[in-house]
Structures are given as structure tokens and as C-alpha cells.
Amino acid sequence: MADKLLEIKDLNITYNTEITTVYAVNGMSLSLEYGETLGLVGETGAGKTTTCLSVMRLLPEGIGEVTNGSIILDGNDMLNLSEDKVRELRGNIVSMIFQDPMSSLNPVMTVGDQILEVLKEHNKDMSKADLDKAVDDMMELVGIPANRKNEYPHEFSGGMKQRIVIAIALVCEPKLILADEPTTALDVTIQAQMLGLINDLQKRLNTAMILVTHDLGVVAQTCEKVAVMYAGEVIEFGKAEHIFGAENLHPYTKGLFDAIPKLDEDTERLVTIDGMIPDPTQVIKGCRFAERCKFATDKCKVAPPVVEVEPGHLVKCHRYGK
């Protein structure tokens, strides 16, 4: 067994079209221990989903390209494996819960067959009776009666569809779940149920998870570690108490927390971070957040170093360098 379940080092990803090149991920590095939960937060366009797709080797063919870096998953060099080997790992070692269950499920297959399809791919020696029992057990585990396995996706509500997607992702008991905003399309009540379900299943199966979300409240409830992404790179990484305590240090992280409405304060207007994320088609040599940062100086024309301000708490900012 490898020391870490997932280790991403200096990852760079581009999307190449006939019109332009988009620099989606820029020098990203992070790691994840076995059984650990990591929250990946940041604005839309930060590169969160692209990072997850690269771990699964599901970047759009002919458009998405990893131009530098490495992804080591459970001791496997994901970027240098054959497609057949990667197919063995998908579902078995790593699974992804996509944010839209409507587009994740096949409308002409029963939900039971969709769960069974994944199970058969990775358990070719199982008997039909054992496969059927495993499907029934998985449906019951996510809170859906097993006798509904012969129904089609359109016969289920949005929350139930998401439960089916979770069942498909977990049926082979993978070591890592990549949950890409799994509750975005759900109302608040169902969202709480889904998060509770994922956490419960994760503890039962000792599965690690990367939770991609915009909701810092969700991260606070579910994640042990947090990585804050901005413009394709991790600008702050640490334990949840580092990020959610008074110790969060990067100006962008502070801006995210300042934008959260406070229940004990009466304010007419919420605080916002001025400006927009930089154009992803442009190569930026200095700090990517400099144009929106009130602390920016001439130093910020050069890319900042990664500083370990305390054990396990990393910040990418000139304010904390030597």
C-alpha cells in the first residue's frame, strides 16, 4: 500500500480548441490520506471539476490535455497507465458522483441494471444470485426499496436519482470517491439527507472522499481537510480548523469567509470580492489573485512561494514568505 491514497504534484491541464487554449489547472499540488475527507472549494472556473476528471482520466478526448505533473492513486501512476488498466481502476478504486443525476443515468436502462453493470465489470466471478443480492443490498443501503430496481430513472424523484448515482459509485466499495457538487440540484432538506448518507456510507466502507462544493457550510460539517482553489491552483491547504479558524491567511480565503452572511449581524449588503477571476486563456506569471487583492505590491508580479505557516497548513502568498 502506498503512503498516501492520492498525490497530485505540479499538475497542469489545458483545453485546446481551434480558437484558443484555456489554461484550466496551473501547477496544482495536493495529497489525500486513506479514509480522509477533503473539501475542494473555490469560485466557478477555479479548476475543481477538471482536477477530478483528470484523476479519473476522463478529460474530453482531443481537447483536454495534461501538459505537466503527476497523479499517483493508490500507488498507480494514472497518467501513464493503459486505457484498459484505467478502466479496471474506475469504479473499483476510484468513483465519481456527478452533480447532475439527470445526465448521469441512462434513461433506457433500469436503475438495477445500471448498478449491476458496474458490479459485473469488476466482479466477473460472482454468480448471478450473488450479483442480484449485492444490487439489492446496495439499493437498501442508500434508502431505496430493492423491489424498485426494475424501474427506470424517470420514475424517481431528483433526490432518489441522486441516491442511485451514489449507489453506482459505491457498489464496488472504492477507496476514493470524487463527489462533484453532489447536492447542487437538490433542495435543502434532501441535500442534508444526501450528505448524511454519503458520510454514513463513507464511514462504513472506510472510503476517502474529495468533496467539490461552493458551500463552506457543507465543508465545515463533512471535511477534515480543505483545499482552496483559485484560477487553477491551490492557494491555501490545511486542516478544517486551520481554514475555518482565525488562522485562515490567504486574502482570497478571507474574502470567501467575509462574503458569508452572519446571523448575529444586521447588514444591508453582503461583502464581495471585487473584480473577476483572471482570463484563463492568458498566461499569468505573477500572483493570480493580485488584481483583486488589497494587499498587492510589486512583489506580486512574481509567482508567490508556498509557505508552511504551521505544520500541515500551506499558503501561497508573498505576505507569509521570508
Rank of each mutant, 00 (worst) to 15 (best):
K262D: 11
D298V: 10
R204H: 08
G321P: 03
A179D: 04
N80R: 11
D136H: 09
H242N: 15
Q114W: 04
A185E: 03
F295C: 11
E61A: 15
D77Y: 04
A303G: 02
M160H: 03
S29Y: 04
I115S: 03
G196W: 03
L195T: 00
E65Q: 15
K128T: 09
L89Y: 07
N16V: 15
I71P: 00
K128S: 12
F156I: 03
V188K: 02
H242P: 05
T67V: 14
L79D: 09
V55A: 07
C293T: 08
K254T: 11
L249T: 12
E117G: 08
M28Y: 00
Y320T: 06
V218A: 04
G62V: 10
C317Q: 12
L58E: 06
G158E: 03
L6G: 04
I8Y: 01
A129D: 13
D187T: 05
H122P: 02
I8L: 02
D136G: 08
S70P: 02
A208T: 06
Q193A: 01
K239W: 00
T272I: 13
K175Y: 06
H122I: 07
G232A: 05
G91R: 13
R269K: 15
E265L: 13
E236M: 07
E61R: 14
E18C: 09
M109K: 14
V309G: 08
N106C: 08
G45Y: 05
L38T: 03
G112V: 06
E224A: 12
E33S: 12
G39Y: 06
D215I: 07
A146W: 06
